[in-house]
Amino acid sequence: MRCVLIKMQKLTHVEGTALTDHVIKMLFQSRIITILDFLQEDVEKLSNICKLSIPQILEARNRILTKFSAPVINGSCFIDKIRKGTISIKSGVKNLDNMLNRGIPAKTITELCGIAGSGKTQLALQIAINCAKETHKTVLYIDTKGDFSALRIQKILEKCQYSFKEVAAIMSRIHISYIWTMEELVNLFKNLKNGELVIDNLVLLVIDSLPSLMFQYLGEDNKLGLSLLNSFVNYSRFICKQLNIGIICINMQTRWVDQDLTDVEDEENSTAYKDSFTEKRYRCLGRYWQHIPTLVLELEKIKENDNENNSGIKITVLHSIDSDYENRHCILCVGESGVT
């Protein structure tokens, strides 16, 4: 598995060095095929194979190393690049966009978390609809627990009084893939990275939900799940930067109750105890994941508004790279016409 993940690049002609196509052909004949092979092979042996001098080989090696190592960039260029590059994807949900200033940030991973039934899927569906509607671009929805409902999308759009033609056009821009294991997910992302899977005009990728896949590895002693999660994170980071898209991951929260037996100071009855419970909520997926998303939104269901089957969701920014946003919150409403 590992070997497959580390991409081995084939040796090609490097400009300004003695590595001409002819020399490379000779190297291939001696089974030196990838760049890694070339870097690892003994210099003298290479010199013999290529019929080049040792300094020429060393020069070629240095060139390759500079070409493939991480680039150096100076501070002002970097700031410029970030300023120009920061774009947001409008979620189309007014309160949410106001809270986040513009919308869901592109080029990074965003997390929606909340306990079961708090409206994570509903919000994700709505964001997918709005993105396809406003930007005329494509949304890829990765469904890992059969939660996607095209009927629900059609009903929301119908309620918002879109014509049949418009509904069909919007829905044709929402693409869905059912994924059941972490390996399949990593494989899909790998293909997206390599360009084997091309989705035109992709603007947003939603994964609903990661724990459904990751929990399949719970209780096993090997760290297979963690290594797959790591590959997934690396691919996602690469893809969202390269394709300039936003990635939304749905995570869940679980509640744990601590029972504290506290001594109640009572003069008459000194042995009285009072039970007190404290409920804690944890985001799932372990400690590694906690700092991966640059924006974490917590969803919480609030008291039902009795009229017309509507209910409310409170959204809080749990974590953001921009600390101004932290602890901001807004209220959304879920009903027949979707999340507004």
Binding site: L140, F148, S149, A150, L151, I153, Q154, A168, M171, S172, R173, I174, H175, I176, S177, Y178, I179, E183, E184, N187, L188, N191, E196, L197, I199
Partner: peptide
């Protein structure tokens, strides 16, 4: 190993409704 399929919501809607 590419055993995933990509559907559009329109296709799924047709499937779901019938």
């Amino acid at each position: 190993m590419s055993n995933y399929k990509i559907h559009t919501a329109t296709e799924l809607w047709q499937k779901e409704t019938c």
